[in-house]
Simulated scan of single mutants.
Amino acid sequence: MLRAVEAMIDEAPPEQGPRRFGNVSFRRWYGILEGRAEELLRGCLPDAVREAWGDGVVEEVKAYFLGGFGSAQRLDYGTGHELSFLAFLGCLWKLGAFRDEQGREREDGEAERSLVLGVLEPYLKVVRRLILTYNLEPAGSHGVWGLDDHSFLPYIFGSAQLARPITESEPMPLEGSVPGAPRPSDVVKPASVDLHRESNMYFSAIGFINDVKKGPFWEHSPILFDISGIKDGWGKINKGMIKMFNAEVLSKFPIVQHFPFGSLFSWDPDPEAAVPAHSVHLASQPSSTVNPPAAGGGSGTTAPWAEATKMPGAAPGVPPGPGIPYSRAPWTRGVSSAPTAPRGGVPDTGPPPPTTFARGTPGTASNQYTVTKAPWAKD
């Protein structure tokens, strides 16, 4: 099915010429997908499922499927669309589409691993081609304050690939890595990213960032850069990623407002649920757009398991949240990170950055500036 979806790109080539926002040919591609969606879904839903649930289930699953490939109206793609495709797979799971020939669910975890590596990773590759072909905008991006402009799931599953193995009776690993795993700090080394991007989803996502963004890694992806300094292994990173996904995707109204609810995924409010905490995205905004933190709220959701410095220049009465780790910028080594006397309302964070850097080959991961290597990572 994913191969058929990708092949439709050739039927709707992008319009030529420079443009600031998404290519309008994406709407034509999306129209082709929409017209063939029901046929594709009937091909992947077993006959027994359609007989048991009726044809209405196809329409319900279709909404999640189409939502997983971006917005034809806004010409964008983001974590909400990624969530929609995850829900599509969840629907198929609940309908029994992944059971064995005897109709039984497998208990060895093989089905789950096959879904992640055999479906989700190929799906992400299709999406990345869509983004590059039609220049899709990030949907609701927080800029450098977000983990990634487009995706979140590959960081969860990619870190799980590298976390130490556990038995059925063990809890989720809080630290440690599988033997021979690359170090978290290797994500800022282009050669290491190129080496592991074909076998690990975390490094594959980092590699795509390197393909589409220029400049120092710590500058355009500060949260990922901050996470790369964790010393306790991929287990801790995986646990933190799951917490962050819950806070930054599942608990965000701008994302959930587009999520359809029905018989397979129903809306059931939890009366015992805690009030969501304000994230660093709100805490870093001007005072006119920031609400006071809710009582009992947390300390922000940007990589809560990683150490970071305070964001300078916070509005009066608003606690500063964790922000870009200024003291870890390569040119501030040896310079105190403590803010000095305010100048124009913003504390002085040190000398200005260098104006020139050595570059790699354009269009490849090596295009990162050479100073992006984490200062604490030694060859």
Rank of each mutant, 00 (worst) to 15 (best):
A97K: 00
I156P: 02
G297N: 07
H281M: 05
L264K: 09
V256Q: 15
C91Q: 00
V249P: 02
H220N: 08
V127F: 00
F69L: 00
G298N: 09
E11S: 14
L115C: 11
A338N: 03
A274R: 15
H258Q: 03
E38L: 02
S279E: 04
F253A: 14
A314P: 06
G180K: 03
P319H: 06
D211E: 15
S84E: 09
C44F: 15
E107M: 12
I131D: 01
M311I: 02
A181P: 01
F21D: 14
S288T: 09
G262R: 05
I166R: 14
T133P: 07
E137P: 10
A37P: 07
G118D: 11
V280S: 15
A294F: 15
P286G: 04
E112T: 12
A338G: 04
R183Y: 06
F357G: 08
V61H: 11
L33N: 09
A374E: 06
A63M: 11
S221I: 05
R28W: 03
E219D: 12
T372G: 04
G323S: 03
E6W: 00
S204W: 02
M8H: 07
H142P: 00
G103F: 00
F245I: 05
E60M: 11
A48P: 08
E198H: 12
S251P: 04
Q368M: 13
P165V: 02
L92G: 00
T289F: 14
P351Y: 08
V188N: 12
A295W: 08
R129C: 11
G334E: 02
W331S: 07
A181F: 04
M244W: 00
H196V: 01
A37F: 08
E107F: 02
R42S: 06
T133S: 10
S337T: 03
L264N: 10
G334Q: 09
T79I: 11
T370S: 10
A273L: 12
A48R: 14
G31I: 07
P269D: 06
E110Q: 13
Q16C: 04
E34T: 15
P276M: 06
T370K: 14
A247N: 10
G78N: 09
S114K: 11
L92T: 04
H196N: 11
G345F: 10
A205V: 01
L174K: 06
G67L: 07
V178K: 07
G215I: 03
F245N: 06
F98Q: 03
D186Y: 05
L282W: 12
Y369S: 08
